[in-house]
């Protein structure tokens, strides 16, 4: 069942004041519960504008957003409630932390929802455990934590609202591999538990191929391609035209194929590539 759907969504900023405020034009796609969509596009492709229309931070000029098959803007006064259902994690979310303790900061969203203190406490414990935030760190000021720890507190603040759709704008930017794996695992676990739909924006084709079911390629505010990870990456020429890349292993496989080896190139993960090459090697012995 589609949990989030957009139909002919368009939005133009009243006055473009800088490169960072891009327009979007005629965006239609749909996300099922339990599904993960990755969004690829350059800075200025309209990514952040699109994300902000999904939770009603931006009201589209035309077109519609459907949440659980219902118009997001059906009753504009209730838009605040909708934002709890579509959890949006901004880029570098650690810069939004403000409370005295990490615990209180995670509680900010749930409190705005009007949940009881017991329920909030339960959720904080659950999601800080999921993200590996220690009891000790929960009682510290968020400003005392390390960059990676802050990021996890910020994410916990969104997960504790238990949104039906989780939208993440470059969630792992600046994190080291350990922090990255931890974050992705937490997102997956949350998705398994709640069957939420997930949307991830990332520049890492490698991460996207690991995390996503479908990919959406955005350029100049328009959808250039939308389909399964395989479909999108197979059309590497189109991606190159847009100045985007396929994963590094895929490029290796394409190179090998171009050299005349009879080898598969629809491969996006390292393990698969290694298997294919070793296979090819032993067969040609």
């Amino acid at each position: 069942m589609s949990i989030l759907k957009t139909k002919n969504l368009s939005f133009t900023y009243p006055q473009i004041s800088s490169v960072h405020h891009a327009t979007i034009n005629d965006i239609s796609f749909s996300l099922d519960s339990g599904e993960t969509i990755g969004i690829i596009g350059h800075t200025g492709s309209g990514k952040s504008t699109l994300l902000q229309t999904l939770n009603g931070l931006i009201k589209p000029d035309s077109g519609m957003v459907f949440l659980n098959e219902k118009d997001l803007w059906e009753n504009p006064k209730e838009i605040y409630q909708k934002r709890f259902k579509v959890g949006l994690v901004f880029q570098y979310p650690e810069y939004q932390l403000f409370e005295e303790t990490a615990y209180k900061d995670i509680a900010y969203g749930p409190k705005n929802m009007g949940l009881s203190d017991e329920e909030i406490d339960l959720r904080i414990n659950e999601y800080s455990a999921l993200l590996g935030i220690t009891e000790d760190n929960l009682n510290k000021s968020p400003f005392e934590l390390s960059g990676g720890e802050k990021r996890r507190v910020a994410l916990a603040g969104i997960l504790a609202m238990e949104p039906d759709v989780l939208v993440l704008d470059e969630p792992t930017a600046g994190l080291d591999p350990i922090g990255r794996t931890m974050l992705f695992n937490a997102i997956k676990e949350y998705q398994i538990k709640t069957n939420a739909g997930v949307i991830i924006v990332s520049h890492s084709m490698e991460d996207l191929s690991k995390m996503c079911d479908k990919l959406l390629v955005l350029s100049g505010g328009e959808i250039k391609k939308f389909g399964s990870v395989k479909d999108v990456f197979l059309d590497s020429a189109e991606l190159n035209n847009l100045g985007l890349d396929v994963p590094m292993v895929t490029r290796v496989m394409l190179e090998l194929k171009a050299k005349g080896l009879d080898i598969r190139s629809d491969i996006f993960t390292v393990d698969e590539a290694a298997k294919e090459i070793l296979n090819f090697f032993s067969q040609s012995l």
């Binding site: 080291d176 591999p177 350990i178 990255r180 490698e206 994963p247 590094m248 292993v249 290796v252 390292v270 393990d271 590539a273 290694a274 090459i277 070793l278 090697f281």
Partner: peptide
């Protein structure tokens, strides 16, 4: 704690696999 590029990772796997 460094993340290996896919290429280096692939070559390491191939090496371990006997190439």
């Amino acid at each position: 704690g460094l993340s290996l590029p896919q290429t280096t990772e692939l070559l390491t796997l191939l090496k371990n696999g006997g190439l």
